[in-house]
Nucleic acid binder design. Structure first.
Lengths: 354, 354
DNA sequence: CGGAAAATGAGGTACGTTCCTCAAAATTTC
DNA sequence: GAAATTTTGAGGAACGTACCTCATTTTCCG
């Protein structure tokens, strides 16, 4: 059997109360006694049973996640993943509340944030651009002792960032583009919804870095902003393709992949260009299968969601993180390694619904 | 507050004992009563507190993992990951025992397996080739109600497989090779330690599939077996390169990447060929950075380890799996997206060691 | 309708920890 | 060495669930 606090008390020759004081760093214990207890802990290899501890503490983790209400498949998929991770975590005293806020209204966001402390929320995850309002709201939460996690797009004053290294993601897109085009010659188009968000800037920087250094034979054209509007996208792409006769690749840094592939389809260019984009949404999946998108740089929303919960819980408990586990991978998806949609086919030992 | 069994009892108008019988599927309750309880559960949104349940059950998960004692960096990294995952899981009543067995001696393996039931092990994970001895051992464990998980290389009679889809991995390697070589012309060499293990066979199959279908301009040479011996590897590669003048790419399906890059270095070919291999070991990492390996298809050992534990626990509890989470990704690593080695740099709310 | 069988209730103990109170012992201070 | 202070001990209640026993009620069957 695993040793319990009682074993520690016996081994250290002290009472249970004292062991408890040491374990929970409560005052009123002599150094000498603390040492004795710690030695017993080491000697017996005691490991605190967190499930029992949480039960006794009556601790439960109320966590809030705030996402913009943009109608993007990626955000939708992230929201779904969060909801699922939340309900899976319900069995372990964790409760996740998902809020959506109007993307263009930072004040609405701030308003939601300010109500959280009342409902004893132990942590907040936030996907939002870095505006002064957001920055202040984050600061104020942290001042109240509530940890804040930045989701997908980093916020420098958050406690932790859950998402990929976007600079590296841009570099990865760069190598793929460069190698797939055989190093040149040719031109490459770069598209982005908005060139202001931190993640876009970093992707572009990483992409350029690699293209300049490793593929000087390829000319990277100026970034085009599409503002999330299908019409703009269509117009901008058509114009560019008309003016730049040697375009062989397109790097779509974020969003709008649906409109992009449709535009290319309409122009009869589908499959003729090397197209690299971000986020493996359902639509991008089929585009990959059809061959109208060549490669996708993506981050797994399930992983993002679970990591968010784990990190918030760890922060709430002031426990260290398993950095390796929280490192969100930059995944490269080609037609040949599209992750299968989950479905289980294995026989089980026993099929009763427990 | 979250509803508890007591609330359910009150709501359903039955006693606590009855609720308990329903929750734990014990006999002696009328259908009508079962229905009433379940309605109360739904109505109040009751979620069983697993931490309390496990505590009450006195349940603890003793899990055994068996790895061959091969001195491969991949296996070493897997062993490390398992040990780490094991100690992280210790706080939640899980105990992992790691066994190593002589790779060429299936009987030693069987011997270890047969001792496990005595020590009330609730599940076993196993990385081993599919021999008759192993097959029987697995069958016998399952007959005793102990779930068995196949690690890295699949065993058809296991309860679950933790690892990547090796056929898809081979296909992925194929597309990368094909595209990086611009579709041809040229020759591609394929190396494997042993062409008998299930994972190797599947990788080869996937690779060929893609090469034949999508890159007919590239000639894939016959697979070469290296048997894990550096000398053989060296000889085989040298011979092949001498006989096949148009080799532009090498696909190393498993193991021996260290010897391979060294051989290429010695021959002055480093960086001149497109080399794709498997598993991001420390050595492969540096080879990627130096440019002597072009791309790596890998599976994350941390993920493998954690998934193994989660799956075994779920199987032991007869609970459903989160298929999405247990899906091990086929990761593509290039020089530009090498995952950073973990190190934390964020400021924390508070630095005390809790 | 009576008796047997099945279903339910009441109550208790246990899991390993937290956190509390109050008393007793040890140590420090003057 | 007595008083003040600090440290320690003993014990108990609680967290939410599991699982046990024994008594009581309800239902079923002939």
């Amino acid at each position: 059997m695993r040793p319990t606090v009682i074993d520690i008390a016996r081994e250290a020759g002290v009472s249970l109360a004292t062991v408890d004081r040491v374990l929970n760093a409560r005052p009123g214990v002599r150094d000498k006694t603390i040492r004795a207890v710690n030695e017993a802990i080491v000697k017996l290899g005691y490991v605190r049973d967190l499930t029992a501890a949480n039960l006794a503490r009556g601790r439960s983790y109320r966590v809030a996640v705030l996402l913009p209400d943009t109608e993007s498949q990626f955000i939708q998929s992230l929201a779904d993943a969060l909801t699922e991770a939340g309900s899976a975590a319900a069995t372990s005293r964790t409760e996740l509340k998902l809020h959506r806020f109007p993307a263009e209204d930072p004040h609405a966001l701030a308003a939601v944030l300010s109500t959280l402390p009342d409902r004893d929320t132990v942590g907040v995850a936030l996907m939002a651009p870095e505006t002064p309002v957001v920055r202040d709201a984050v600061r104020s939460l942290r001042a109240k002792g509530i940890p804040v996690v930045a989701l997908v797009s980093d916020l420098p004053n958050a406690d932790h960032f859950v998402g990929i290294d976007n600079r590296a993601a841009g570099r990865t897109a760069g190598v793929m583009m460069g190698r797939f085009l055989g190093g040149g010659p040719g031109q490459v188009m770069v598209l982005g919804q908005s060139l202001l968000a931190r993640d876009m800037i970093e992707r572009r920087r990483g992409f350029d870095e690699v293209m300049q250094r490793d593929f000087p034979g390829l000319e990277v054209l100026q970034s085009l902003e599409t503002h999330g509007s299908p019409a703009t996208m269509r117009q901008v792409v058509a114009e560019m393709l008309a003016n730049a006769p040697h375009v062989r690749g397109i790097y779509a840094m974020g969003g709008g992949s649906r409109t992009l592939t449709q535009t290319l389809d309409d122009m009869g260019l589908s499959g003729k260009l090397t197209v690299i984009c971000h986020e493996l949404t359902p639509h991008v999946r089929t585009a990959l299968e059809r061959g109208s998108i060549t490669a996708v740089i993506t981050q797994n929303t399930g992983h993002l969601a679970r990591s968010t919960l784990r990190v918030l819980r760890a922060k709430a408990d002031n426990q260290p993180l398993d950095e390796g586990q929280e490192q969100i991978r930059i995944e490269i998806v080609l037609r040949e390694n599209i992750p299968p949609l989950p479905d289980s086919t294995r026989p089980s030992l026993d099929d009763k619904v427990a």
